[in-house]
Amino acid sequence: MKIGVLASQGAFAEHIAALGELGVEAVPVRLPRELDGLDGLIIPGGESTTISKLMLDYNLLSEIKNLAENGLPILGTCAGMIMLADKVPDSRVEPLGLMKIGIRRNAFGRQKESFETELPIAALGEKPFPAVFIRAPVIEESDEGVEVLARLKDGAIVAARQGKLLASAFHPELTGDLRFHQYFLNMITENGESGRESTAGERR
């Protein structure tokens, strides 16, 4: 299995390291030709305006959109979640528009409101997930076909899945807890639809 990590800007090295710990080959993607032969793609946290601009300038936006419409699984964390959404009420970001979710950027305020919390995510098991929120967005609305995976105590949606697309407002790549990445890998291999090897889910 080979996973690409969008490396236009942001915390891509952390995702590559997390995948490495799970025994999966991960490669940085900065240009469309680097999307060839991927079994999945991660769009990392970073600044969504920066990432959006670099994706547009180097034709990544349309290429990734095409691949996703043909079934490429994608995980987006924080800025990556914003890029997956179809409703981002901010002209400074042009998202991929793949998931039927509406986003509010910087939903908690500025950096001094950034926080950590133990987040219950039923899909990952009983043990709560150490979730790090950094100037994080939230999902304000989600249409049919979107499965909500996690909410904060106040009800705000912070993780969701739609088919082979997975999004989190927090940063699983910063915690050393690999369950969220493993969930993404399992998602890629389930139904035998994708993935050249199906070893990912068995590795742990």
């Binding site: 490396a7 236009s8 800007q9 942001g10 915390a11 891509f12 090295a13 952390e14 946290g45 970073g46 600044e47 920066t50 924080c78 800025a79 950096q111 001094k112 409101e113 950034s114 926080f115 950590e116 919390t117 790090v132 929120f133 950094i134 100037r135 940063h171 910063l174």
Partner: peptide, 20 residues
Amino acid sequence: METGTWKVKTGLAQMLKGGV
């Protein structure tokens, strides 16, 4: 929910990486 932790302080810098 805990704000101002070392993780969220260093984490923002990690999100800035590869940038100007």
